[in-house]
């Protein structure tokens, strides 16, 4: 038992020394060119294709304001739809608070989904589910075949 532990310690030291002795691998000569090309590509991108933090400040502010207005608009639409479509939502949508608006939107979504589903014949629904399951299995099969072809031999 003691010998095993000693052997293991010896192996750890040996591998550690071996690893520490190894010089760095030389990076491919193409790396620097690739990085510079990528940086050039990124520098040439228009502002609207860069990440949000790289947008010009006025546009960032404008975007936030527009997003808030859009959110408010959605809540108002939720309120309006709640009043017109769902009787149970009427009481809730009397105030235009964030919570009531969201509740109304959820109620409307549920109501509309139920109505849409009731319009679709069951046979069509089952066929669609079967088709999705078949496609998923096909995708899984392609994945397995790709793995076996490209990676399994590695």
């Amino acid at each position: 038992m003691k010998n095993d532990a000693q052997d293991n310690q010896q192996l750890i030291k040996f591998v550690d020394k071996l690893c520490k002795q190894q010089p760095l691998r030389t990076a491919p000569s193409t790396l620097q060119l690739r990085v510079m090309r990528e940086l050039q590509l990124q520098a040439a991108l228009p502002w609207w294709r860069k990440s949000f933090i790289n947008w010009p400040m006025p546009l960032q502010v404008l975007f936030v304001v527009a997003a808030l207005l859009a959110a408010k608009l959605m809540l108002l639409i939720g309120d309006w739809a709640g009043i017109h479509w769902v009787s149970s939502a009427i009481a809730v949508t009397k105030s235009s608070s964030l919570v009531s608006g969201t509740e109304a939107m959820l109620t409307v979504t549920r109501h509309v989904s139920t109505q849409l589903l009731s319009l679709v014949p069951m046979s069509v629904l089952y066929t669609a589910i079967l088709a999705i399951a078949t496609l998923y299995l096909l995708l899984f099969g392609i994945g397995v075949a790709t793995y076996k072809t490209l990676y399994a031999a590695r």
Partner: peptide, 23 residues
């Protein structure tokens, strides 16, 4: 045509560290 800002300086920086990163 668009060269990144500090391109030369960054190239030297890369030269110093690229082997370590790649390894």
């Amino acid at each position: 045509k668009k060269k990144p800002v500090h391109a030369d300086e960054f190239a030297s920086f890369m030269q110093a560290f690229q082997d370590m990163v790649f390894s």
